[in-house]
Nucleic acid binder design. Structure first.
Length: 165
DNA sequence: CCAGGGATCCCCT
DNA sequence: GGGGATCCCTGGC
């Protein structure tokens, strides 16, 4: 088993967000983003990487939160093998980035459409509470449209962020 | 240390 | 037929 604490996310929404996969309407690719909140939306990008999202909102609304960084907590040796890192690495390198964390946690499209509360292979549960003042927000990364939306959220100054916020 | 480019596949136009 | 919610390695300073 591998596990970690989510430390950085980005929100995507059908309404007024041209960077969202759902901004073009419902297609076979983005279908799961229109399901009930709590489902797992995984997509493959740049020919080599997976990204994992938690669907949000009610059924019929195309919205999700992309998980961008995790602090690794359980199964670090497994993560190291999956990431194909040598012996010199810092724990955060395992999971500080949306593609990296999918590789480290073994997430691929076989999990597409699973539910994070009921799936036998992937789950999200409450771990810690953070004050609102310890959360930072800023522009999302790697997009060209709707850049202005401050929908990247992260734990302030956490060492495992994909980039400082 | 940083900027640039290649890898490589799926889905939409 | 082409772009993309990325990553890693290279080359130049």
């Amino acid at each position: 088993m591998t596990a970690g604490m989510i430390v950085e996310v980005e929100a995507y929404h059908q309404d007024g967000d041209l960077a969202s996969h759902t901004s073009i309407g419902r297609t076979s690719r983005n279908e799961v983003m229109f399901w009930e909140g709590g489902h797992c939306y995984v997509y493959f990008i740049y020919g080599m990487h997976h990204c994992v999202n938690v669907v949000t909102e009610n059924s019929g609304t195309g919205a999700a939160v992309l998980i961008r960084a995790v602090e690794p907590l359980v199964g670090l040796e497994v993560m190291q093998r999956r990431r194909r890192l040598g012996s010199r690495y810092t724990p955060c390198e395992l999971t500080a980035g949306p593609g990296k964390l999918c590789q480290a946690l073994g997430i691929n499209r076989s999990l597409l459409g699973h539910h994070f509360m009921t799936s036998p292979t992937v789950r999200i549960e409450r771990y810690k509470n953070f004050r609102e003042t310890s959360i930072a927000c800023g522009p999302r990364i790697g997009i060209s449209k709707s850049k202005e939306l401050p929908w990247r959220l992260a734990i302030k100054d956490h060492p495992c962020l994909s980039r400082p916020i």
